[in-house]
Computed example of a mutant assay.
Amino acid sequence: MYICRRYTDNADFSKALQELEQCGFIRKFTAIGKKTKDATFQLIDNYTLFYFDFISENTNGDEHFWSSSAGSSIHYGWAGRAFERVCMQHVNQIKAALGFSAVVSSVHSWSYKGPKDPVTGKTLTKGAQIDMLIDRNDDTINLCEMKYTSAPYVITEEEDNRIRNRRETFIRETGTKKTVLIAMITSYRLAPGGYSDDIQCQLTMADLFR
């Protein structure tokens, strides 16, 4: 959940955002190549987000709402978003697992909306969004794909094409000359064989808590 796209000149509002960030309720990040004034703020407090999905939605006061939601689309949606937040809150462990803890780096997000038709205003090609990338001082960038599943994650042909398109779009639109590697972070590793062999860096949930 993104709560603000840009800084504001309102001093009180800016102070409130700063205090929320310091308390760990939100995180601030900038798109790679952008300035601080273009920062995005994302709500990351785990209980607050759990509240929105499973407490505020429980309008009937059902004490079994959480357990009865297991296996539902609501549960899987929340689990996927929660896993992404856990990854974002364990960047140091991700760096260590990838073997570049001593390298100076910065964490960013990036998005590309694609060109629009000047007449209709409709987007002509699909855009791309990367929730977390790590820009390293050793001329390398890791694009992090975070996937939660209850079993080893299978990369389908469609998913492989989407990942390749996201990487190529990022390289083309940013003009980066750095080596761009995909880092796939999954809950229970990648299913062996097939398209998983094309992933350069693989991490599991266990790496986040070492």
Rank of each mutant, 00 (worst) to 15 (best):
Y2W: 10
R6D: 13
T8H: 11
D9T: 12
A16E: 02
A16V: 05
L20Q: 14
L20H: 06
E21Y: 03
Q22V: 01
G24N: 06
I26E: 04
R27C: 05
T30I: 14
I32Y: 08
G33C: 05
K34M: 10
D38L: 06
A39P: 08
T40M: 08
I44R: 04
N46V: 15
Y47M: 12
T48E: 03
L49E: 11
F52I: 09
F54Q: 09
F54H: 11
I55A: 02
I55P: 01
N58V: 08
N60V: 08
G61K: 02
E63R: 11
W66G: 00
S67V: 15
A70L: 15
G71V: 11
I74Q: 14
I74F: 12
I74Y: 11
Y76S: 12
G80I: 02
R81Q: 14
A82Y: 13
A82D: 14
E84G: 07
E84R: 06
R85I: 13
V86W: 00
C87F: 07
Q89R: 13
V91I: 15
A97Q: 04
L98F: 03
G99L: 10
G99Y: 09
A102L: 09
V103S: 14
W110T: 06
K113D: 09
D117R: 10
V119D: 01
G121K: 00
L124N: 01
A128G: 03
D135Q: 06
R136T: 09
R136W: 12
R136I: 13
D139W: 02
T140K: 11
E145W: 00
E145H: 01
Y148H: 14
T149F: 05
S150N: 15
A151F: 09
A151Q: 14
P152G: 09
R162M: 09
I163N: 02
R164H: 10
N165C: 02
E168Y: 04
E168S: 06
E168A: 03
F170W: 02
T174S: 07
K177L: 09
I182Y: 06
M184I: 07
L190R: 12
L190E: 10
A191D: 12
A191W: 08
G193M: 02
D197K: 14
I199V: 15
Q200A: 15
A206G: 00
R210D: 12
